[in-house]
Amino acid sequence: MSITSPNERLIDSFGTHWMKYVTPTFVYVLLMLIIVLLFVFSQFLTGYSHASGAVAYFFTFALLVGIHHWYFHRILSEYMMDIVVTTKRFMFLRCNLFLSDDTHEISLDRILAVEAKKRGIIQNILGYGTLWFDTGGTSTDKGPIIPLVPHPHRRVREIMSLLRTQGS
């Protein structure tokens, strides 16, 4: 996939912030609690009618299996979000298993400016934010935006020092 030029050197490679796992895990735990309630309800229903109890059990199983695989699909997909910085380029690799596999590659020659944003209490406390690259002719709405970057201001400093080194 990636053929590196002879004088290309890796500066840093890292995954996005662990915050990406929080929302799916929270939803998973919540849905599992609902599943437990559905199992209790199915048990209760079986006391009245065996057939309706069996149907309720089956749909609860189906829901349990669906939620379980949805969760791990999300977790494994989120795990695949990678950021790679080399002396020549910046790469953002993102994939959603079975659905998409994207590589955003920005040559350092094209970068005019880099902006780091940390918004809100959670982002400031946990130390993650968004990186935006000004490659000329793009706006913050359409330009290359990298979300969930750990310590974005430090990354900006690293990239800017790289750009200065290349410029001199």
Binding site: M1, S2, I3, T4, E8, R9, L10, S13, M80, D82, V84, T86, M91, L93, C95, L97, D101
Partner: peptide, 13 residues
């Protein structure tokens, strides 16, 4: 996909 990522990282040492 993981194999491809590892290839990228390996190529960059």
């Amino acid at each position: 996909i993981h194999g491809r990522r590892i290839e990228v990282l390996q190529s960059l040492q």
